[in-house]
């Protein structure tokens, strides 16, 4: 008798909990970003984030040790490559400095607005996604530091992703390699554009590239920075690793090796002021007169109709 009663109450409990789960899924699915669940999520993020910070500070050396141990062979190779690249970069530096002054002078002459003026908040990476189906990092800057959802995030090597959730003192950044991430990219040499989509632990996929586009291996891919896009133009996304044509499709697909090593990110910069286009930053959208555009603008200034 007692056993049946216990069995029944267990089943009742499970049914109740399953119903609660389903209710939460439905409420969250419909509520979007304004429901009470979002507030609860933000609170969890703030609480857990502050503790993550402490744990990361303690355990980071251990994690570095283990990941270093696993990758010792590739580290040696990459060290050699880096020394080589550093030498190349040093030799190019002088030339770049000369070009920079030239560009500054020319821009002054043209009264052109600087397209790539990055203003941002530096942040430490304090955690990564707990899921195997999501590629995000947690950083130690949040709403109190002026971070808002949608802001682009960069590291020294290039674009990292954008902010998808903010707590009071921590934020979650969706990485470029997340399958839900999509960025308008531009092949630097030819100027052809495409949509760079994350493909988990593989290279990024640049879709919708014109089939006539000429693609060279190791060519740089940068953000296109279309009007209204989250990202300013000219941020390095990665390098072309290979290209292939889908016979059933009218466009070309280009594989892009990300410039940033997402497994060992430590410091990032959140771009709070997006100057090249009207991004999500707190600054008002700059007047359209300075924006570089190709061809005549199809949208005239809105006029009151009546």
């Amino acid at each position: 008798m007692a056993v049946t009663r216990r069995g029944r109450s267990t089943r009742l409990l499970v049914v109740g909990l399953v119903a609660a789960s389903l209710l939460t899924i439905t409420a969250d699915y419909r509520g979007g970003s304004a429901g009470p669940l979002e507030i609860a999520g933000r609170t969890t993020l703030t609480v857990v984030g502050s503790m993550q910070d402490a744990v990361t500070k303690v355990f980071h050396p251990f994690g570095d040790f283990f990941s270093g141990l696993v990758r010792i062979g590739s580290l040696e190779a990459s060290n050699r490559r880096l020394v080589q690249e550093l030498n190349d970069a040093l030799s190019q530096n002088g030339r770049a400095a000369y070009l920079e002054t030239e560009v500054t002078q020319l821009q002054g002459l043209l009264h052109m607005r600087q397209t790539l003026q990055l203003v941002g908040v530096g942040a430490n990476v304090i955690g990564q996604s707990i899921s195997n189906f999501e590629w995000t990092i947690t950083i130690d800057q949040g709403q109190s530091g002026g971070i808002r959802v949608g802001m682009p995030v960069v590291a020294g090597a290039g674009l990292v992703g954008h902010v998808v959730e903010t707590g009071l003192t921590t934020s979650v950044v969706q990485l470029l390699i997340d399958p839900n991430s999509a960025v308008a990219g531009r092949l630097l040499a030819t100027g052809d554009t495409g949509l760079v989509v994350g493909d988990r632990n593989q290279d990024l996929q640049m879709n919708l590239v014109s089939p006539s586009a000429r693609v060279t291996p190791n060519e740089q891919v940068v953000t296109a920075g279309f009007q209204g896009s989250l990202y300013p133009a000219g941020l390095l996304i990665g390098f072309v690793s290979r290209e292939y044509t889908d016979p059933q499709s009218l466009s070309k697909i280009v594989s892009v090796r990300p410039a940033v090593d997402f497994s060992s990110l430590q410091f990032v910069l959140v771009l709070t002021k997006n100057t090249s286009n009207g991004g999500p930053g707190p600054t008002p959208r700059p007047s359209a007169s300075g924006a570089p555009s190709t061809g005549p603008s199809p949208t005239p200034a809105p006029s009151p109709s009546g």
Partner: peptide, 29 residues
């Protein structure tokens, strides 16, 4: 046993859900 397992799983899953960027409640379920 099953009732502690279900309850513990629900609480742990909900906590995990609130740290993920997807419909909350899937891990809890």
């Amino acid at each position: 046993g099953p009732s502690s397992g279900a309850l513990g799983g629900f609480v742990g899953g909900m906590a995990e859900d609130f740290l993920l960027n997807q419909p909350k409640g899937i891990t809890a379920l």
